[in-house]
Design a protein around this nucleic acid. Sequence first.
DNA 1: GTCTATAACTCGATAGAC
DNA 2: GTCTATCGAGTTATAGAC
Lengths: 223, 223
Amino acid sequence: MDEQRFEDRLQAFIEEIKQEDQMTEKQRSILEAAIKLFASKGFHASSTSEIAREAGVAEGTIFRHYKTKKDILIAAVAPVIVKIAAPYILKDIRTITEARAEKSFADIVTELYRNRLSLLEANEKHFRILIQEAFFHEELRETLLQTVAKEGKQIIQRFVEQRIEAGELRPLPPEVLMRIVLSLLLGMVAFKYVVGKEEFASLPEEEQIDLTVDILMNGISQR
Amino acid sequence: MDEQRFEDRLQAFIEEIKQEDQMTEKQRSILEAAIKLFASKGFHASSTSEIAREAGVAEGTIFRHYKTKKDILIAAVAPVIVKIAAPYILKDIRTITEARAEKSFADIVTELYRNRLSLLEANEKHFRILIQEAFFHEELRETLLQTVAKEGKQIIQRFVEQRIEAGELRPLPPEVLMRIVLSLLLGMVAFKYVVGKEEFASLPEEEQIDLTVDILMNGISQR
DNA sequence: GTCTATAACTCGATAGAC
DNA sequence: GTCTATCGAGTTATAGAC
């Protein structure tokens, strides 16, 4: 019964966000406070009174704008999915599919890695919430997988298959290739954010990416 | 003030776990119920009354055994750190350092990947809690990084350096090599558990590992 | 600011093991 | 009969909701 509501809400928010300048001052500060708190303490550990205090509004004001606490979560997370994740994935897909022969696989992947890392850096807090809450709220996880994984999978696979046929890549199973490419990205992200910046980052990020792509291409390109 | 207490508690639990058969029936069922709930809903979303119901005990009984709810979390997670993470890391380190010239880098990595994936499979719930709560509880994150990252880093780096000197691996920065090796493992885990089994696993796990190692070795080995 | 539910946690009563 | 594990109603605080 809740999954349906979530889809509806998401649709509603897509509309709402399109004219998001209509958001009041208070509404915006509530969302900002919520994002900050959710990202640092998690959804359940952040109380609405805390959000109100942080936002500098009365607690009642929160419920004027968002019916439930969960609505705040959705309002915080939905834009990330519809504004950031989806368009960027579509953009990538375009970039990848349109770059038929002009660009090398290495260049495309390098660009992909750079995109992703800077995107993540710019929206760190949102993604934190997204990842954490996706663990528990199946609605979110489903929406994410539907948006990200399923749509992306086919196109990337087809593209990889083309590159294999063209003799640029080794004839490996496409989904394995895809996994490897994404694993290395995921690994860079994990080391950057989880393990810590100081401990491991002996090289500047640019070089990290270049080296990673170099190793990747040695591993997957056709001799 | 809390970090100190955590270390103390951890020490206490290390002792406790060593004679863990002294655990009463109830105590064990409380822990089991808590692990189940924490893993599926998270720490804050699981109430003690729920844990009690799930475990088939009175709520008061919980607090006879665990002073606070957080103690249950620690009791659930501490064994993973002290019983599973630490010994396995030590075992790996042994495996790696003792396999001087006899074993190829590829064989060692293959073994590492297999180990890790089956270890994860056997303790999925515990690791779920560990990862989720490590996001928020700095104590846990610190303990983990101290136990896992720091200790492992030096040894693996030294080993990788030896393999480079021996001409088996390309002269890449050791921490980059390490990141790549771990990224591919992380990626396999992520695809297995997050993205889902059916969607992507067209190949059996054994072959996935072998292919991954093959690609890795093409990428990092010296010609 | 107020209401209601529920959270974590307490403690005296109880009952079975030795 | 004491002792130890258990029960569960009761306490206090604070959550979300309006």
